[in-house]
Every structure is written in C-alpha cells, then in structure tokens.
C-alpha cells in the first residue's frame, strides 16, 4: 500500500468502491433466466457440434493446425539454439507473422533469453514485449478455442 501511495498518488485518492448500478431485482431473477436459457438449448450430446458430413474435415483441419503449431515452434526455437542473431525488427516481424502459432509464454521466454544477449541498441525490454502481446488481441486460450 505504501508503494501504491508513492507510485500512484492520484489513483490512491480515488474511492475504490463500485460505481456501477444494475436494474432493480436483477440478481434476484438472474438464476431463473439463466436456467430458462440453458434449458431452451439442446444438450450438447443431442445437438451435436458438427454436421456428420463435415466431421472428417474438421478432424483433418485440427490435425493440420496442430502440425503447423509444432513446426512453427520448432523453427522458432531452433533459430535461437543455432545462435543466429536477430534484430529487434526481425523478431517483431517474426512474431507478427506467426502470432497464431505460438503461445504467449513461448514468445516471452524466447525474447527474454534474446534480450539478455543483445546490446543496448537492439534490445527489446520485457515490458515492451508484454505491451506488444497485450496489444495483439490474441491469447493461447483464444487460439485453442479457435482450433
């Protein structure tokens, strides 16, 4: 709390309470409305998620996507093992082109390692990497959902 007072004196002065309201009785009726919604849907077992004819296509697409991810990560990690020196721009371009194939952790770890090897001119700080990843609207949770 002392740190917060020092680092963010303005923020500290703002009341932390909840500034939002909900319509009257909203929470009293919510569980009932959720229950209605849930029972209005067919159960996943009955509804089935894919048309029967498309199922093999879906499986094929999933396998292809997983292979792409594995190949992408292998290529990325190998570049570092071989000691090839990439510039900051090259790294960012590589991430941008392959953002859908790497988890955030893989990218962060790779760049953290690299940033300790490079000089002050080519260095990407961990904070910049985090900012960049946050600004890219993708997480590994979303990636897995898309697959």
């Amino acid at each position: 709390m002392k740190n917060m007072k020092k680092a963010a004196p303005q923020l500290k002065d703002i009341p932390k309470g909840n500034p939002w309201k909900v319509p009257a009785d909203y929470f009293d009726t919510l569980s009932e409305r959720i229950s209605d919604k849930v029972h209005g849907e067919k159960s996943p077992e009955v509804a089935g998620r894919f048309l029967p004819g498309l199922r093999p296509l879906y499986v094929f697409a999933s396998v292809a996507a997983v292979l792409l991810i594995v190949a992408g990560v292998y290529f990325f990690v190998n570049n570092y093992r071989e000691g090839r020196s990439l510039t900051s721009d090259e790294i960012l371009v590589n991430i941008e082109e392959n953002i859908y194939y790497y988890s955030e952790e893989t990218i962060i770890e790779a760049l953290f390692v690299k940033s300790t090897e490079r000089g002050p001119n080519g260095e990407i700080t961990p904070g910049e990497v985090v900012d960049y990843l946050i600004y890219e609207d993708i997480s590994d949770i979303e990636l897995l959902n898309d697959i």
């Binding site: 917060m4 680092a7 963010a8 004196p9 303005q10 923020l11 703002i14 988890s103 955030e104 952790e105 962060i108 961990p126 904070g127 985090v130 900012d131 990843l133 946050i134 997480s139 590994d140 949770i141």
Partner: peptide, 23 residues
Amino acid sequence: LGTSVGALKASYHHAVAKIEKYL
C-alpha cells in the same frame, strides 16, 4: 488469463503508470 506471473506484474505496473499519467 493463460500467461505468466512475470508478464502480469509488468503489465499491472505499466497500467498503473499510464493511469497515473492520465489522471
């Protein structure tokens, strides 16, 4: 959020700094 503790700490620290600047 499916990310590391270190990344979150850095992110929170940056967020506080940006908010303070805005205020």
